[in-house]
Computed example of a mutant assay.
Amino acid sequence: MFRSLTAVRSLSRPAVLRAGFATGPSASATTISDEMLEKLGGLSTQALVDGLWVMGWPCAQITGSRPLHPSHKTCGRAVTLNFVPARPDIAMDKPPAGESPEYEAFELCGPKDVLVMSSVGPWESVGGDIKFLRLMQRQIGGLVTDGSVRDTDEIINYGFPTFCHSTTAKQGPASMQPWEAQGVISCGGVVVRPGDAIIGDQDGVVVVPAAKAETVYNIAHGREVIEDIVKEELTKNPGPPGKFYPFMSGKIKHDSPLAKLLATKGITPENSNQFEGTADW
Rank of each mutant, 00 (worst) to 15 (best):
A91H: 05
L81S: 01
L234T: 08
A19N: 11
P111C: 00
V208E: 08
S175A: 11
V79W: 00
T145S: 04
D89R: 01
E124N: 08
I32D: 03
G51F: 04
I32M: 02
E227P: 05
N218Y: 05
T167D: 08
F21T: 01
P238K: 04
G76M: 10
F244D: 06
V8D: 13
A197Q: 10
K73F: 08
Y103R: 01
L40W: 01
A174F: 09
Q171H: 12
G242L: 04
D129L: 14
H254N: 05
K251R: 02
K253T: 08
T145H: 06
N82F: 00
K94P: 00
G110A: 02
L261A: 06
E124Y: 15
A22N: 04
L133M: 14
A86D: 12
N82G: 13
L261I: 08
W57N: 10
K94S: 10
E107N: 12
D228T: 11
W53R: 12
M176V: 00
V54L: 05
D113F: 02
Y158L: 12
K243T: 14
L5M: 07
S26R: 09
L43A: 01
D201F: 13
T235W: 02
E38M: 05
S100M: 02
P14C: 07
I156S: 04
N273G: 15
G250T: 00
G56L: 15
H221G: 02
D151E: 15
F247M: 02
S71P: 07
S175V: 02
K131E: 02
F275G: 01
P67C: 15
F163R: 09
V191C: 10
V206A: 07
S28N: 15
W123E: 09
A97S: 11
S4L: 01
G41W: 03
P101R: 06
V114Q: 06
Y245P: 08
C75A: 14
I156T: 12
I199V: 14
I156F: 08
P85G: 00
P257L: 14
V144I: 05
E270L: 14
D129P: 06
Y158S: 04
Q177A: 03
P25N: 15
P95V: 05
M92I: 09
W53D: 14
P269L: 02
P238A: 04
T152G: 07
P95N: 11
Q274K: 06
A279D: 03
P101L: 06
D129Q: 07
N157F: 12
P96H: 05
L133N: 11
K212Q: 13
V16T: 12
I140E: 01
A19Y: 05
A263Y: 10
D146S: 11
W179D: 14
S166A: 13
